[in-house]
Structure formats: structure tokens, C-alpha cells
Amino acid sequence: MNIIILVITVSMLVIAAFYVVWADSFFTVLAASSMVSVGLVLLFVLLRAPDVALTEAVVGVALTGVIYALTLAKIDLWKINDNDDNNDVSQSKQ
């Protein structure tokens, strides 16, 4: 039974990891990185490591997520990828 859960989390993790590195707007990158942490939490639960899962949940998802969000706000990339100011996005792509 947990093999299926494992396969789902693994595939979700790998896809999220792809998005973190290849996504265009940093907004999606932030979301993808939180997704990776969530996947990690699931994995740690499957690996019988509840303490680590809780830490990863709190520190990995919540704390780093908030810190990334704040940095994005400070370097004014905190915009949904609307098409009018593409320069910021293109600048972050190349």
C-alpha cells in the first residue's frame, strides 16, 4: 500500500524540483520549493522519522517559505507573472 504513496510523492517531488530550477517567474519557483519540502515531509513519515518530518514541515515549508517570500518582496520579484513587466521576468530567466 505505501509503495503507491511512495511513488506518488517521489514523482511529485521530482516534478516540483524541475519547476524550481526551470520555472520562469520566481513566484512559481517559490511554490515549487514549498512543494518539494512537503514531499520531503511525506517521505520522512514513510521512513519512520516523525521528528525529522515535523522539523522539515515547520522549518522547511513554513520558515524558509516565509523567508523566501519576504526576500522576493524585497527584491520586487513578488509579482504574479502578468505580461506587462516582462523585463523583470526575462532578466531572471537568462
Binding site: 524550481v20 519540502s37 519512520r48 522519522a49 525529522v52
Partner: peptide, 25 residues
């Protein structure tokens, strides 16, 4: 992009952590 490097670092650390936990399973 510098920020993308930091995200990459996060991913790398995550991967290594999985291996470390797996070592104890």
C-alpha cells in the same frame, strides 16, 4: 540568477538529508 542558486542549494540539502535518514531506516 543569484536567487535561483539559493533555491538550488535548498534542493541539494534536501537530497542529502533524504540519504542521511535512509541510512538509519
Amino acid at each position: 540568477h543569484l536567487l535561483r542558486m539559493v533555491f538550488g542549494l535548498g534542493l541539494l540539502e534536501a537530497g542529502v538529508n533524504i540519504l542521511l535518514v535512509k541510512a538509519g531506516y
